[in-house]
Nucleic acid binder design. Structure first.
Length: 806
DNA sequence: AGCACGCCGACT
DNA sequence: GTCGGCGTGCTC
């Protein structure tokens, strides 16, 4: 008897292990390791989904243990291969999360099953009026419809005990592939030619249909094509089916997320630096060498071309390629370039696709129909086999770290897969993360530099505008005189401007001038932001929305003022200062709709506006030849965050956004407005000297005991009872302090910097450490120990190498 | 998660 | 006495 070890879809600490099931004889050849199945789980008739992680002959349970059988198979083919199963195990261990959650992250969301509980009536002779009413229409009802009615549930449970009703569990697969009706020819062209003369004179429609069939070379024709293009009615088709000339057939088709045709592009001539880069990596690809390359190239140095030609080399060697970009929907330009280069071989995975589209792209990869995968963070789990190279563009980007379970860093997963596939990884960036750059210094990674812009284009000239002076001189705090003049100049020249303001909405908060009262979200510990388009106050954390106050809720004063500038207010002010400006605003609020992002960028590319004003989402990857001016309205927003990576973030952001200027023939100019003109991150962004920034910042990290000199762990507790949360985190802190080395540094326990989100209180500890062999074991103990509290709504989360300490 | 079991208080 | 509230423990 063959047995299957199965991870069940019940994400708790206690069930985070394989369970053994018997494989029924009739399912034996439909099942393999990596298959999704439905299994009975628990005492009742409950069924859950599971993934087979291994098939064994014997098991280690007591001899008299009665095993259950697998109920049904969900897929014909395994959904996870050996590599991804192993990866899920490693991921669960290193991110302190449940294996089933890791598996879920790897699969497209369309594969997450829906559970349905159904109550079936067995005994017709029930004379309870309420029950009769319930089953009046149908013999089975959806349990969820009556779940909230305690009285009814109890009654039904009683009936269940007497075998008068039964509870049935359905595991429904949502992963429905898209099908289209096709008409298939059943007869040859010769037969058609025979039939035509024998047709009755009045069967004109049949004659038309047959002629179409003769004209169409392929055996299958879309039914919609027959009806729309050839105006052949459904009844005509049905008659032909009766005559057995054709048959209807459902054919699975792939949804194509990129309906817009992409223009074909061809390899560009490489400059010397690029040539060396491509060849160095290609050598590793060929030798199946597991190496990590850090490609440090200034903005505009042609990194994308290096990626594309490296992928080309991998394909020539018969291997596949995986390319990751940050939040891909933000950079349609890159996707189009890859699609334009490799055409049908490319599959794209990102959050901008619908569930169905994602599922189809995933299946194309799974079935080996795609050889190049481009995608955002989760695309690192694409079921691509025989990977020859993994590329991570903008490797420093914070979106590569997932901020809920499993809290993985894509870079680490990429390295794991590269090792499994014996292939190199390219980490590319103009401003590498300090972690990566430090590893390159220690020769853990191979450093490749692209120090020049392509065509020897000069880097844009960067000027810093001291806003303290501007404020004192003119009272202007959002737009300085030099920036306004420069913008006017570009508009006259018919050139374009990119303005970045890292704050959406209208004002950042609303304060009463009499008593200092700031309106806060009732669910979160955060002030509400004013939005002028909806005339409301919004919470950016939970989405809470309320009316704009006219009088102070605290002191009834009418002196309410708006502080801080968001993109909405900036747009309004800009139009006041430069009435002839045509401004496109790009932030979360204007890009929420699917495809809105791409549309905005296309409009900008078509010169429908001369100014693109947006939050940091405009800093990434935009490449418009007529943009010659970039303005950063307030460089301090990211600098003032109480986080040790604030300088790094600011430097990266400023460098990236500066790189948007002067990418073609025209040279670029950048203005950075700041209240901290002497800050080193801003000064070094001005000179665009990454290496110097790296050295300076490393010095600070060293003296302050921060990464990459120390490892870090963040432990968070949350729940709706603040007291409980606080005492829990204190307990955890004491437990760890007693067990770790004395040189481990504890920050906290303390309330998280946003201490309350959606009515949940958050407390945290951060631990900085160098070498803690016991750490992993201790943390596993904590998770195990506190899982009992999860039922009471008290949760403990562990984030290994958190991006932020906030 | 979701279900059963078991222990306690408040109802016909 | 028993119904139903919730705390606890287990699921191959």
């Amino acid at each position: 008897m063959k047995l299957a070890e199965i991870i069940v879809d019940v994400p708790t600490m206690q069930t985070d292990k394989p369970y053994t099931y018997m494989i029924p004889k009739d399912l034996e050849n439909q099942i393999s390791v990596g298959s999704r199945v439905a299994v009975p789980f628990g005492r009742g008739a409950r069924k859950v989904q599971g993934i087979i992680v291994s098939i064994v002959e014997k098991f280690s349970l007591p001899d008299n243990f009665k095993l259950k059988e697998i109920s049904k198979v969900m897929d014909l083919n395994a959904v996870l291969n050996d590599e991804l199963l192993k990866l899920s195990k490693w991921l669960a261990q290193t991110t302190y999360s449940f294996r089933i959650n890791c598996i879920d992250t790897m699969l497209p969301s369309a594969m997450h099953v829906k559970y349905k509980r159904v109550v079936n009536l067995i005994d017709d002779n029930i004379n309870d009026a309420e029950i009769l009413q319930l089953f009046k229409k149908s013999k089975s009802i959806d349990f969820d419809d009556i779940d909230s009615d305690k009285h009814l549930v109890n009654k039904l449970m009683q009936l269940k005990k007497n075998n008068q009703v039964s509870l049935e569990y359905l595991v429904n697969d949502k992963a429905i592939s898209k099908k289209e009706l096709f008409i298939e020819k059943n007869i040859t062209d010769e037969q058609i030619k025979d039939i035509i003369p024998k047709l009755r004179k009045n069967s004109t429609n049949q004659l038309r249909l047959l002629k179409v069939l003769l004209d169409e070379k392929s055996l299958n024709i879309k039914q919609t094509e027959l009806t729309k293009k050839y105006k052949i009615s459904n009844s005509t088709i049905n008659t032909a089916i009766k005559n057995q000339w054709i048959t209807k057939k459902q054919v699975e088709i792939y949804r194509n997320p990129y309906k817009r045709p992409v223009t074909r592009n061809y390899p560009l001539k490489l400059n010397d630096d690029q040539f060396v880069a491509v060849n160095t990596v290609a050598k590793s690809v060929k030798k199946h060498e597991n190496k990590v390359f850090l490609l440090e190239g200034v903005t505009g140095s042609g990194k994308t071309e290096v990626y594309l030609q490296t992928i080309q080399k991998a394909l020539v060697d018969g291997r596949n390629a995986l390319m990751l970009v940050p939040e891909i929907s933000l950079t349609p330009q890159i996707v189009n370039r890859v699609k334009g280069r490799f055409g049908e071989l490319v599959a794209v995975l990102h959050s901008g696709l619908s569930k169905g589209e994602r599922y189809d792209e995933w299946r194309r990869i799974h079935e080996g129909k795609a050889q190049v995968v481009v995608g955002a963070r989760s695309a690192i789990f694409a079921p691509l086999q025989n990977i020859g190279v993994i590329i991570m563009d903008e490797e420093h980007d914070p979106s590569y770290k997932q901020d809920d379970n499993p809290r993985y860093q894509t870079r680490e997963v990429a390295k794991w897969r590269a090792k499994y596939n014996n292939c190199p990884v390219i980490l590319g960036s103009a401003t590498p993360s300090l972690e990566s750059r430090a590893r390159a210094s220690k020769h853990v990674y191979d450093l490749i530099k692209l120090p020049h812009r392509i065509n020897n284009q000069k880097l844009p000239a960067v000027s810093i505008v001291d806003m303290r002076e501007e404020l004192a001189n003119s009272g202007q705090e959002d737009f300085s005189a030099p920036l306004i003049n420069a913008i006017k100049q570009r508009i006259l020249n018919n050139e374009q401007v990119v303005l970045m303001l890292n704050r959406r909405g209208f004002s950042s908060f609303v304060m009463c001038r009499d008593c200092g009262f700031v309106l806060k979200c009732p669910n979160c510990d955060i002030s509400l932001t004013l939005h002028m388009d909806t005339f409301s106050m919004k919470c950016h954390y939970c989405g809470h929305e309320e009316a704009i106050p006219k009088i102070c809720a605290n002191c009834r004063s009418r002196k309410i003022r708006y502080y801080g500038t968001g993109t909405q207010k900036a747009q309004k002010e800009l139009l006041k200062l430069i009435p002839e400006a045509k401004v496109l605003r790009m932030d979360v609020d204007t890009t929420r709709k699917k495809g809105a992002h791409e549309k905005l960028l296309r409009r900008f590319g078509n010169h429908e506006a001369n100014i693109l004003l947006g939050t940091q989402m405009i800093a990434k990857g935009l490449d418009f030849p007529d943009v010659t001016l970039v303005g950063v309205l307030n460089a301090d927003t990211s600098l003032d965050l109480p986080d040790f990576r604030a300088s790094e973030r600011t430097f990266q952001l400023l460098t990236q956004v500066s790189g948007r200027a002067g990418r073609a023939e025209k040279s670029g100019q950048v203005y950075i407005q700041t209240f901290n003109p002497d800050n080193y991150a801003i000064q070094l962004a001005k000179s665009q000297n990454y290496e110097q920034f790296y050295v300076k910042e490393m010095g600070i990290r060293h003296s302050m005991n921060y990464p990459p000199y120390y490892f870090t762990i963040k432990i968070t507790a949350n729940g709706n009872q603040e007291q409980q949360v606080a005492s829990k985190i204190l307990e955890i802190s004491r437990y760890l302090k007693a067990r770790l080395n004395s040189n481990a540094i504890f920050l906290g326990p303390s309330p998280s910097s946003i201490a309350k989100i959606k009515n949940q209180y958050y407390y945290q500890i951060i631990i900085k450490y160098k070498n803690e062999p016991k750490m992993h074991e201790c943390l596993e103990f904590i998770l195990n120990y506190y899982q009992k509290d999860a039922q009471k709504g008290l949760y403990v989360n562990i984030d290994s190498e958190p991006l932020s300490f906030m």
